[in-house]
């Protein structure tokens, strides 16, 4: 592998030539803020928050997409960069509800984090906002369009599973939005509630509905665990408050696995003190289901019952 040497904020970094500036910065312990970047997703360079200054180059460049070159000198927090970041954040906040007090995502929201970091505040203005629309049709996912910052992560992570691809960008320009199929409700759409999109949403636009109102990140304990529904083990978290396990949420898909509803429900059932009623989708409608049905173990239980009674007879 070929290595290159570059300087980032005065620090020397020696990294593989295939690295981007953002990856190289990470190597030397410099965090560059980014909203649309994720190491597991295709690079889109859309949010423009990770802009950096490269010496000898009059333009700012997105560090998520720009490859390193030998001798490159990068500034990640220069005056010019900070000004641009503030502007990006301001534009996003100008089109975002001032709702942090009651937002489920508060404390984990990247927009909140960076707005605090760069001291950008909500601005009162009479300009247009995204239309307020909350899709509550699913018992598992809540879509709050007004909070969406169009980072494209949900669409990309959904696209990664060939037979899903339920999410898309619709319309264009200021009217751009994230849509399920042909802009259907989540219930009507072909969404299988795997919650991949929820795990990656940096703001409160896509939320795990079964978590809402129960606890927020600072309010209790978060314990990571691996789902045991299949051998791959996707990463999950159990959230507890006052000594009670109140919710389970998907954290990230396991290597080569897509995340699935069955795994999440199984994890809920096994970990929660008081699991909520599960729902399954039939003919485009969510219906309440028994746990046996939701976990697809009806046949197994029947058989076990029969075997139990046989055993009893034999004894």
């Amino acid at each position: 592998m070929r290595y290159v040497t570059l300087t980032i904020d005065g620090k020397k970094a020696v990294v593989p030539a295939s690295y981007t500036i953002l990856q190289a910065a990470e190597e030397v312990g410099i965090e560059i803020p980014a909203l649309c970047y994720d190491p597991d997703l295709e690079i889109v360079g859309a949010c423009r928050l990770c802009l950096v200054e490269i010496e000898g180059n009059p333009k700012l460049h997105t560090s998520c997409s720009m490859a390193v070159t030998d001798g490159m000198v990068v500034h990640t927090e220069s005056e010019k960069v900070v000004h641009a970041r503030k502007m990006v954040l301001q534009l996003l906040l100008d089109n975002h509800p001032n709702d942090c007090l009651t937002c489920q995502k508060a404390g984990e929201c990247l927009l909140q984090k960076y707005a605090y970091m760069y001291d950008v505040k909500f601005r009162e203005h009479d300009g247009a906002y995204k239309p307020e629309y909350t899709d509550t049709s699913s018992p598992y996912i809540l879509k709050d369009e007004a909070k969406c910052i169009l980072c494209h992560k949900c669409v990309r992570i959904c696209e990664q599973v060939a037979d899903r691809q339920v999410l898309t960008f619709a319309n264009r320009g200021f009217e751009t939005k994230v849509a399920f199929d042909a802009d259907m409700s989540i219930e009507e759409s072909s969404c299988v509630s795997c919650n991949r999109c929820v795990t990656i949403c940096p703001v409160g636009a896509l939320l795990d509905k079964r978590l809402m109102g129960k606890t927020r990140i600072w309010d209790g304990e978060v314990t990571e665990f691996k789902c045991k529904s299949c051998e791959y083990g996707c990463d999950f978290e159990v959230l507890s408050k006052n000594g009670k396990n109140v919710a389970v949420r998907a954290k990230s898909p396991g290597e080569g696995r897509p995340l699935c509803l069955k795994g999440r429900l199984t994890s809920e059932f096994l970990n929660l003190d008081d699991p909520e009623t599960p729902y399954i989708k039939e003919d485009g409608k969510f219906i309440e289901a028994s746990w046996e049905k939701a976990l697809e173990i009806e046949g197994i239980l029947d058989k076990l019952d029969k075997m139990d009674s046989k055993d009893a007879e034999q004894c």
């Binding site: 859309a46 423009r48 502007m87 089109n95 910052i149 169009l150 320009g173 009217e175």
Partner: peptide
Amino acid sequence: TCKESCGKCTPCREGTKRMLE
């Protein structure tokens, strides 16, 4: 430009709208 902005990146999508306003 505002109508023709593709909507992908923040400055163009949000910024041109604010300038137009």
